[in-house]
Design a protein around this nucleic acid. Structure first.
Lengths: 164, 164
DNA sequence: CAGATCTCAGCTATACTGAAATGC
DNA sequence: CGCATTTCAGTATAGCTGAGATCT
């Protein structure tokens, strides 16, 4: 009769069959785990890119990481304020800011690395090593397939984005 | 004038090795595809839950779908305004709103179903049928493993206390 | 001039918190 | 009373747009 208190605790079957729903849930859970350790995805991504690829302009960073130019400006303001990166005018092209890691940024990144590795482990806890590889491979193929979907910068790209 | 305009178009290797990054990218791409067809994840989920599980209170819907009580209120306001659901006071427990699909809501949902199926296909385009099954199975295990992580409502339900 | 870069103001969606009003 | 439900106000991250100033 009246709903038992926990009777509806499970999401509808239809949703569990939808890859888009599963992948969204998983991403949410990943983000929750990461947030609990104080990690912000964008922040980590920018620091990693600077370490691996060296100094870069803000626009290049944005293209590399699919981060909007606007968000990039705000994020680097923070980083600069905290002394993790330095922005200098690129003398070869004075429109650009050359962004580079400071020693403090490098140290902060090294600490984040360990946390990030721990988050991976927490997320994939129920999977074996082999299963993790399979999952990574499949996700990589999906992501690469849609990799060109850069809406942020590319001129001419327009979205419907309708409201009702 | 730097030799290769697209030289840095690829994200750092470290990020491609992180399941959390892959799953986030994939979720983003899924959402972009869905948004381009005018689908909102929460909206679809609520309608599906009402169809599969019948009328429910807002709180029950929220628990079922991991949607916050606050967002639920706003969403149902819209739905009610558009005539897709009806809210009536539950006479057995007058704190509750009984939410149910209207015929118009049922019709709208049927149309969404087709779009949602198309989105799944678009997202998983690069994968074979067998690979899609494997991906779904692995993601399901991950999501179920962290399933208890309902932060939103549950009074005592703290889940595997991940907090700091 | 066209086009790229950076910055700023502002928008939407999503996730989440605190608290008040009402009812059990 | 404690507790649940709904609603409202507000916060934070993320993704995104438009426009202006500056520079190639």
């Amino acid at each position: 009769m009246d709903a038992t208190p926990e009777a509806e605790a499970r999401a509808p079957r239809r949703l569990w069959q939808l890859p888009t729903w599963l992948v969204n849930r998983a991403a949410l859970q990943a983000q929750r785990i990461a947030n609990d350790t104080g990690i912000r995805r964008h922040h980590y991504a920018v620091l990693v890119a600077l370490r691996e690829q060296g100094p870069a302009s803000q626009a290049a960073l944005g293209r590399t990481l699919s981060i909007d130019r606007s968000d990039m400006t705000a994020m680097l303001d923070e980083f600069e304020h905290d002394g993790l990166v330095a922005r200098t005018r690129d003398e070869h092209d004075r429109r650009r800011n050359l962004v580079r890691l400071t020693p403090a940024g490098t140290r902060a990144l090294r600490q984040l690395d360990a946390h990030v590795d721990a988050v991976q482990d927490a997320l994939l806890d129920p999977l074996s090593t082999a299963e993790r590889r399979v999952l990574a491979r499949l996700l990589t193929r999906v992501v690469e397939h849609h990799g060109g979907v850069a809406r942020h910068d590319a001129p001419g790209a327009r979205a419907p984005g309708r409201r009702t």
